[in-house]
């Protein structure tokens, strides 16, 4: 029971929150010290300061860091702390925080920030849960299809007709992939396209060509087309087409696991915030 409590990050959130604000109380609220123009620098104040700066709410780690500091580092830390505290009090004294939306947003962010850092401390990813997560997010892992082809390009008047004749010749002679360069004219971009996606192909040939290409069946021994592009007519030797697919979990396990952890963290952060919101009764007077 106790073990479970200790592992529950939500509870950490409450504890650490209390510890933080408790420390803050001991340093004293700005109002009552401001009158004395004294900024108290003590261990608790510095530990709190370090935790906010490093975005890690672990008092032991902060204490370790403070104790491990060189004199120069500690002085720099104190300088930063005093500077921040002084500016903060001055701003308070000037009434800058009254009804200031920025301050309001910052305060909200601060709580979100604490909730998030608590949620990040969830570490272990259960294999079953990762599998479930993958099952419900398969579309996030979709990989685009790809083509491997070479082409013979003709442009100018009656390019399509000349290409049709040339296609017969290429097929009769069984012209191979590596011999395509011996035929046709120079195209603006590449001769050979290896494992290229539809988007990449569209960025070189235009979108209409991409759609026409998608209707060809791969055949490493057959010259097909001509297909029309923005530039002219193309005879195609389409040697490979890999359909779009979602990989098996084993192929991308690390990535899914990390995605799952992040998803879980967000859920927990949202839950923590929700619990705070639920403490309030909302009166809608619209």
């Amino acid at each position: 029971m106790i073990g479970k409590l200790i592992r529950d990050p939500l509870l950490h959130f409450v504890f650490v929150g209390a510890a933080l604000f408790g420390a803050y109380e001991r340093v004293g609220s700005p109002e009552d010290i401001a009158s004395e123009n004294v900024i108290v620098v003590d261990r608790d104040a510095l530990l709190t300061f370090i935790q906010y700066r490093s975005k890690a709410f672990q008092p032991e780690a902060a204490a370790q860091r403070l104790d491990g500091m060189t004199d120069a580092d500690r002085e720099a830390l104190i300088r930063d702390f005093v500077r921040e505290e002084a500016l903060y009090r001055e701003a308070e004294a000037l009434g800058m925080s009254d009804n200031d939306y920025i301050i309001r947003r910052r305060s909200v962010q601060k709580l979100e920030f604490i909730a998030q850092s608590m949620a990040e401390q969830v570490v272990a990813a259960d294999a079953d849960k990762v599998r479930d997560y993958f099952g419900s997010h398969r579309q996030d892992y979709y990989e685009e299809p790809s083509y491997t082809f070479t082409h013979v390009f003709l442009k100018g008047a009656e390019a399509a007709e000349r290409a049709s004749q040339l296609r017969e010749e290429l097929n009769e002679r069984q012209v191979a992939f590596s011999d395509a360069a011996r035929y046709g004219e120079r195209f603006l971009y590449h001769r050979n396209y290896v494992e290229r996606t539809p988007d990449f192909i569209a960025s070189h040939f235009g979108e209409a060509f991409r759609d026409r290409l998608s209707r060809l069946a791969p055949d490493a021994g057959l010259w097909q087309g001509p297909l029309e592009s923005e530039y002219g007519a193309h005879l195609i030797l389409l040697s490979e087409y890999r359909p779009g697919r979602v990989p098996e979990l084993v192929e991308i396990e690390t990535r899914v696991e990390q995605d799952y952890l992040r998803f879980e963290q967000q859920q927990r952060q949202e839950l923590a915030i929700q619990q705070i919101v639920e403490q309030y009764h909302v009166e809608n007077r619209l």
């Binding site: 992939f177 360069a181 011996r182 590449h190 001769r191 050979n192 040697s239």
Partner: peptide, 19 residues
């Protein structure tokens, strides 16, 4: 060069047998 191959930046694939 252009007539028998691809210029720099290009791709080769499917080497003919023994070449």
């Amino acid at each position: 060069g252009y007539g028998k191959g691809v210029p720099m930046g290009g791709d080769l694939s499917q080497a003919p047998e023994g070449k």
